[in-house]
Design a binder for these strands. Sequence first.
DNA 1: ATGGTTGCTTAGCAA
Length: 260
Amino acid sequence: MHSMLRVATWNVNSVKARKERFLAFLHRQRPDIVCLQELKGLEEIFPLAETKAAGYHAAIHGQRTYNGVALLSREPIAQVVKGFDDAGDETAARFIGGTTMGVRAYSAYIPNGQAVGSDKFAYKLEWMRRLRAYFDARHRPNEKILLAGDFNVAPEDRDVYDPEAWRGQILFSEPEKAALAKICGFGFQDTFRKFHEEGGHYSWWDYRQLGFPKNRGLRIDFIFATAPLWERCSAASIEREERKGTLPSDHAPVLAEFDG
DNA sequence: ATGGTTGCTTAGCAA
């Protein structure tokens, strides 16, 4: 691994709609590895020329209208995987991985689930089960692995602006929290919580009902790292500024830094 | 200011 590794994850909610903001973010923050979610388009809508000019290699798993994930890196990306390759449903482009800059990195967009008890909720839990199974089958927790993305689950009360109102609801139900804990049980730790213990830090705010101005948010975007990386994590942040201004994504980017 | 989303695709869905 390199002497310093800066990693970012961001659900951009359409890379086409967010193109200028996203490129400005790349130039301002200069992350080494970037995990993107909700591209909402095929690879042809991704600003490949601009990201290449900014110094990035890219691996894209696109999809028309929905989903879509990408991995960017300052160095070439090897052994790219798209989807779980486990005989389950692969119609949704929600998972991409690659080896770059001395680590194995994955960008994941966990299904939203819509409502507890719905068909989409069952799909979400099954997708999360498959995510854990993927790591059990392909990796060991002593490898340097990053798993970053929009998990659509807030793990604890301190990650929710009004936990009593949200308790049992979608994004904050017990089965979802258990499924996320199971994924982390592989050996992933939350880089943000290494440095920030208190509540009030969120990564997503609903566009509706003045969610952001009222800071009615949830922390559902994470950069998880296995122990060999987590131990070297030296900083983590949520870039709340990116949620401000004209036509932002409903998610803020999350950053983490690792010392080599 | 007594309200109040956005994006994709084109009226309705997803988040």
